[in-house]
Amino acid sequence: MKITQVSDKDLLQAYLAGDESSLEQLIIKHKRKIFTSIYLVVNDSFVAEDLFQETFIKVIQTIRGGRYKEEDKFIPWVMRIARNMAIDYYRKSRRNVMVNGEDGEEILSRIEIIENNREDQLILNQTQKTVRQLIALLPEEQRTVLILRQYADLSFKEIAEITHVSINTALGRMRYALNNLRKLILEKELHLQ
């Protein structure tokens, strides 16, 4: 049977019944989405690997401890755990290395698209690589909102809170980010799929 034909709920039940291979299937199904959300926020492949592990250790402990109550919403739940860990990492790293600013922008000033430092593990095609590089060209405040909304799955309200701006400012930055990214893509004459 193909992995995609088995629901997450069924895999979870099988895992709880002692079938370790069900966990592997769950991870295989969702690892890219979860890892991407961590990696693009923390911007460090080693940290992202650690947080991915920590996320699933927490998932395993919660499930095994009988505390998982969201049987039909497995991935949103895991994504929330991953996102919170990534954001926590940011807050801690900001305290350690960031210079304080007035409007909170420094919080995420390290959110930038780094050069491909682990090319062997990238699964991007050339167009995707180029888009990723174009994101790095966006002004910092736009790039921050875009990454938090697009990859950390934070709401605009949550982004506004974390960056200490109004929700309209967060929305405006996202609008400019997408508009500018669109222009950059057209300048590069990329063919969107």
């Binding site: 890892f35 992202a48 991915f52 592990q53 699964i123 893509i185």
Partner: peptide
């Protein structure tokens, strides 16, 4: 544009996945 952004994906190393699976098996 959003769909193009959606398509950007990374994956964890095999070692990381295996460590998670090992943790699960060893703490069963």
């Amino acid at each position: 544009t959003k769909l193009e952004l959606d398509a950007i994906e990374f994956e964890p190393s095999e070692m990381t996945v295996n460590e998670v699976l090992d943790f699960s098996a060893s703490h069963h």
